[in-house]
Nucleic acid binder design. Structure first.
Lengths: 220, 220
DNA sequence: GCGCCAAGAATGGCATACCATTTTCGCTCT
DNA sequence: AGAGCGAAAATGGTATGCCATTCTTGGCGC
């Protein structure tokens, strides 16, 4: 395995944590997969100590589960978990969008609009990959513009835990057109600075996106 | 210092983490206070390894801040932080209350009512200590009854970070009577199973409670 | 042949030792 | 006397080793 590469003057545990986070989120480590300390340590060319500390962090973040004397495994996300986490995510994102609607500058909104139209172009070209990327970026930016760093952090955290599911969902979403329309509605409300409507549209949008997975077949 | 006592067969890091968490939340460690590894380790009669892992966990939870090569200090909560975190807390609690309003059994609601009247008794006796305790318990129970464990965990986390502030606030709150009335309104809405109203009343209640501290003098 | 038990291998938990960086404090030089 | 510099002490960062627990596997008995 390649070695840990990362912004140089950060502590080793941060590098390791970021590395593992990335690979878990990107599904290079499957849920349920064991993460043996010694093996991983030699693969990452670090000792067990920073690796263990990194695993504790990821456990606190909910990306891995550590059982006493049985080690760390990549967290499995059950349909029930998806439902729960998605609900909270939508609550947070609604709150953030309302703040953004109030706080964001006109330029910020314009940039969101630009991203939105880029995304629409991807939709028309049936470019699911870039559509997904831009969709993520728009949602993240809306939250970022809220200016509430606590909200931003918590959202990012939850978002990571759902990234894999979201990615899979994007690949086989039949109601793509509907989602696109909802996005239009959200952007329109944002442009109109209609706080209450932004919140409502966003919550509706997110609610729909996940419900089918929350009730559906196992994700694995 | 006394030694770490805890449910016996849990890992050392959990014991240490719980111990430190408790003391930080209870304000036995002041914000900004340094937490030197070696010193703490001998006080707690553990080695530095589990202590470090515990500190990483607390850092992820936001209770301590770790700077590279400078160690861990108890997190300071600036007025801006209080404002941010309180806002998110109110959002989460509103969402939880709405779920509770739908999901809770009549017995659950009755128990909440009972606690509420116990609290009112404390109010009439001007017993701030027990009023505070019951108030906390009611809020926590409302969240617990939501049944969404993600929501519960996140709320508990934020709640801890604000515990100290909340405690201080309770001691010198002049608008005690108003808060009490708002609680009555919340309970009434809960009893009536009026979801939207529960959310609104709760959000209003929490908003008021903190705003004064968010804008007020430094908390230290 | 199947299941159970025991011994050894594997793995995580904790302690300790050593290294790197930072801080502190005293000395010197101006 | 004060500012700056340097060495030593303090402190965090990482690596390693040993112990406890768990998993695995091979053999024995039913």
């Amino acid at each position: 395995m390649e070695e840990v590469a990362q912004s140089s003057h950060a502590g080793l545990v941060e590098k390791v944590a970021n590395y593992l986070r990335e690979h878990i989120v990107m599904d290079h480590f499957q849920p349920g997969q064991r993460l043996p300390e010694r093996t991983l340590a030699v693969e990452l060319q670090v000792s067990r100590t920073p690796l263990r500390e990194a695993l504790k962090i990821l456990a606190t973040e909910g990306l891995v589960v550590i059982s006493p004397h049985r080690g760390a495994v990549v967290a499995e996300v059950s349909p029930a978990d998806i439902k729960e986490k998605s609900y909270v995510l939508s609550v947070l994102e609604q709150a953030a969008a309302e703040l953004t609607c109030i706080n964001a500058s006109d330029d910020d909104i314009a940039e969101l609009q630009a991203l939105h139209y880029e995304m629409k172009a991807c939709f028309l070209r049936r470019d699911r990959q870039n559509y997904f990327r831009l969709n993520q970026e728009i949602h993240n930016r809306i939250v970022a513009l809220s200016g509430n760093s606590t909200l931003i952090d918590m959202h990012a955290n939850l978002s990571r835990q759902l990234y894999r599911v979201r990615y899979l969902s994007n690949q086989k979403n039949e109601k793509w057109a509907t989602a696109m329309e909802e996005h239009e509605a959200i952007m329109a409300a944002l442009e109109a600075r209609d706080t209450e409507r932004v919140g409502r549209e966003l919550r509706n949008h997110l609610g729909k996106t996940w419900v089918k997975y929350a009730h559906g077949e196992p994700v694995e």
